[in-house]
Every structure is written in structure tokens, then in C-alpha cells.
């Protein structure tokens, strides 16, 4: 009897982890960090490595955080030999795909910072997916990043 309960729980766990519908909250997000900001600027960037470990593609559309008014997804790009950044309204991450939110690639853009980001500070950030699900992460503010 005891074993049966055990196996049932295990089965439930397996079903849960291979759910047919990908959920943003199951995304693997590692090493989220941001840079301390100058008191005069009202923008910041958040970086991390994101892997879609679910069996389905997910589409990131933005996010929210208590430290800024707005959160956008931006990608660095070159145009006519000049460097700039593009606001990505939707970023599709295929099943198993790793996406680098790192300097020079993608970054989460914090716009309208309520206070400057201070070194050692940790703040929450919710990444929003197109299906309405969210992945909550914690971001560590670094003093200097090389």
C-alpha cells in the first residue's frame, strides 16, 4: 500500500515535469545580474542565460519589476556599421534552445528606474510569456563587470 502511494506520487511528478503545455515558469534562468547605475540615468540592463528546458517553444514578450516603470526586451544589432538596440516585442525560444541575455546580445531593459541600482542590491524581476505565464527571478546588482 505504502509503495503504491509512492509510485503514484512519482508518476504524478513525471507527468508534471513533462507537461504538454510549456510554461514560462519552467524556464531555466541562471546567473541574473545587472550593473550599478549612475544616479543621473533612468535605464538599466539585466543579463542572464536562459534555457528552454520544456518540450515546447515559448515566447517571451516582456516583464515587470518593482524597480522600474517599464521592462522591455532589447537586442543589440548593427546597422550601416553602427551599433544600436532593437526593442523585441516577442522573442521565441524553441524547446531546448539556450538564449544568451548577455552584453552585446539580448538584454532586459529597465526603463524609468525609480532609484539608481546599487551594488549588492537584489531585486525581483518577472519575465512575461505570450501565454500569460511568468518566470520570477532575482537579479543581483554588480559593481563592475568586465
Amino acid at each position: 500500500m505504502r509503495n503504491r502511494v509512492r509510485y503514484s506520487l512519482l508518476a504524478l511528478g513525471l507527468v508534471g515535469s513533462t507537461a504538454t503545455f510549456a510554461d514560462c515558469k519552467d524556464l531555466d534562468v541562471k546567473g541574473a545580474w545587472s550593473r550599478a547605475t549612475a544616479p543621473v540615468v533612468n535605464v538599466g540592463a539585466v543579463y542572464f542565460d536562459l534555457t528552454n528546458t520544456t518540450s515546447q517553444a515559448v515566447t517571451l514578450i516582456g516583464g515587470s519589476t518593482p524597480v522600474s516603470d517599464t521592462v522591455e526586451l532589447h537586442r543589440r544589432e548593427m546597422k550601416n556599421g553602427m551599433m544600436g538596440m532593437r526593442h523585441m516585442h516577442a522573442v521565441k525560444v524553441a524547446a531546448g534552445q539556450k538564449l544568451e541575455f548577455q552584453p552585446g546580445k539580448y538584454h532586459v531593459m529597465l526603463i524609468g528606474l525609480k532609484h539608481p541600482l546599487k551594488a549588492e542590491q537584489v531585486f525581483p524581476l518577472s519575465l512575461q510569456c505570450a501565454d500569460g505565464s511568468q518566470r520570477k527571478i532575482e537579479v543581483l546588482v554588480h559593481k563592475i563587470m568586465q
Binding site: 516603470d69 532589447h74 546597422k79 556599421g81 553602427m82 524609468g112
Partner: peptide
Amino acid sequence: VGYQRGEDNTAIGYTMYHSD
């Protein structure tokens, strides 16, 4: 060094493209 104004569909108002 060259630069030009980028898109304005972002909450920062507009971005800039510039030589790095």
C-alpha cells in the same frame, strides 16, 4: 564616427545607432 536616431517604439522615447 557616424550616428543616427533609431526607432521610437520603446519606452525610452528613441534609441540611437552609433559607431562604437
